[in-house]
Amino acid sequence: MSQTFQRGPVTGTAVKKRSRRKPFLVDYYSTAVGKKYVMAITGIIGVAFIIGHMVGNLKAYLGVIEHNGEQVYDIDVYGEFLRELLVPILPHGYALWGLRLLLIGAVVLHLHAAWSLTMLNRNARPVKYQGARDYQIANFASRTMRWSGVLVLVFIAWHLADLTWGWLNPGFEYGAIYRNLDASLSRIPVAALYIAANIALGIHLFHGVWSLFQSMGWNNPRFNRWRKGIATGIAAAVVVGNVSFPIMTLAGVISFQPLS
């Protein structure tokens, strides 16, 4: 792609060499615009998950409830509910696994697109400007998408090992979500990591959500002026909601007592 400067007559530049058409999804994904479209879709899936996940987690604040005649932590019920989703249509846990696979697929695609576009852009300007740039519109969020993204990725890994598989969780009990949460987040460094990661995520979404409207080609004078607002709103909600958990845990609002 890198242009070397050559002379001589120019002609026939648009005469297509009949290359066999690739299957349309592959074909579509092979261009930058297509990749951005995929990033947007996977981004949307991500956003949907994050919001759902956050709302679910808010149940932690409901503390203990009466469930089938016994005292349990509401959020544990929620966890169980997820695993019981669509039972008896699907066996226990299947639906959840379906969702998980969707998420994994999305992250993988999102990542691959991000990676290959980043490489493309590198090659598009191998020699940087030698003087300082004076950006007008591009902001911190838009210029750090890769880093905020990677941070989130790292967090997810840590997070799974902590709260899903329990490797990094002292005395992890499968399904005892409330207990695991408290155990994990009452450790100051861990709490700090959660806070940092979610701020990074917020920044990523601040640009990402606005950006996806463009990538999806959703552009209409009637709602254009909302796009930035929606992005800011979602980013803020995610940060506030998610950051509240570590803070409240440290503050003792979320604190686990064994229920006899």
Binding site: M1, Q3, A14, T31, A32, V33, K35, K36, L117, L120, N121, N123, A124, R125, Y135, Q136, I137, A138, S142, R143, M145, H207, W210, S211, Q214, S215
Partner: peptide, 21 residues
């Protein structure tokens, strides 16, 4: 055709908005 030709020379848009400015 135009998008794919563009693709063979240039980088990708991440909606920075600098171009408009």
């Amino acid at each position: 055709d135009m998008v794919e030709t563009m693709d063979s020379y240039f980088g990708s848009c991440t909606n920075h908005g600098e171009c408009e400015a």
